[in-house]
Computed example of a mutant assay.
Amino acid sequence: MKTTPNTTEQLALDNQFCFALYSTNLALHKLYRQLLAPMNLTYPQYLVMLVLWERDDITVSEVGERLFLDSATLTPLLKRLESAGLIRRQRSRQDERQVIITLSESGRALQQQATAIPASISCAMACDSATMHDIKQQLEQLRQRFQQA
């Protein structure tokens, strides 16, 4: 016969999946903070730059879709990146409601500095690329399930 854990055990912090994910995320962000400091980027700004290094000249809504962020969260990030001279924001000529984000020369040049970051993260994880890929894939599947819940 299966026994059900008591309420106290169910609510113990160390038994919480969410806390394991949260505390791992905190540790990861701490590492990123150290790696990004020489580039004067925050982690969310780095994510925006990753999107733009993949595909430049895109709308704010396209950036938001890639990062799962709404425009109210994204707009201040973009303003700071623009103030830092890394991007340009301008209204679309075809549709005034859309704002197009374009990398500046400084923003493009920053990509070269960022090339060592993925290897540093991989090294800190201390696992092979197949394991890292599997973990990433499992997290993506989990995110998708949570979005559908």
Rank of each mutant, 00 (worst) to 15 (best):
C123S: 14
A84S: 13
T102F: 00
D70N: 15
M49E: 02
I87T: 10
T24I: 03
Y46V: 01
L74F: 02
S104L: 02
N15F: 04
L67F: 06
T3S: 11
E105G: 02
A119D: 10
P38E: 05
E65N: 11
K79D: 09
L67E: 08
N15I: 00
A27E: 09
Q147K: 14
R88W: 08
C123E: 15
I58G: 02
Y22S: 13
T73D: 08
D134F: 04
M132I: 05
L13P: 01
I101K: 06
L41Y: 05
I58T: 04
H29W: 01
I87L: 13
S106Q: 12
I100M: 12
R80L: 05
S106T: 04
K136P: 00
D95S: 12
T115Q: 12
L86F: 13
L50G: 05
E54A: 10
R93C: 00
T42S: 15
E62P: 00
R55F: 00
L67R: 06
G85S: 01
L26F: 09
F19N: 11
Q141N: 09
A130F: 07
R88Y: 13
L36H: 05
L77G: 03
Q147Y: 09
Q148V: 02
K136Y: 10
K136L: 12
I101H: 09
A119C: 01
D128R: 05
R55H: 10
R88D: 10
K2S: 10
S122T: 04
L142V: 07
F68P: 00
V63I: 15
E140P: 00
L139K: 04
Q137W: 01
L110V: 07
T131N: 07
I58H: 04
R93N: 07
D70E: 14
V99Y: 08
C18E: 14
H29V: 06
P44S: 07
Y43I: 05
A124Y: 06
M132Y: 04
F68A: 07
I100R: 07
H29C: 09
A72Q: 12
L47I: 00
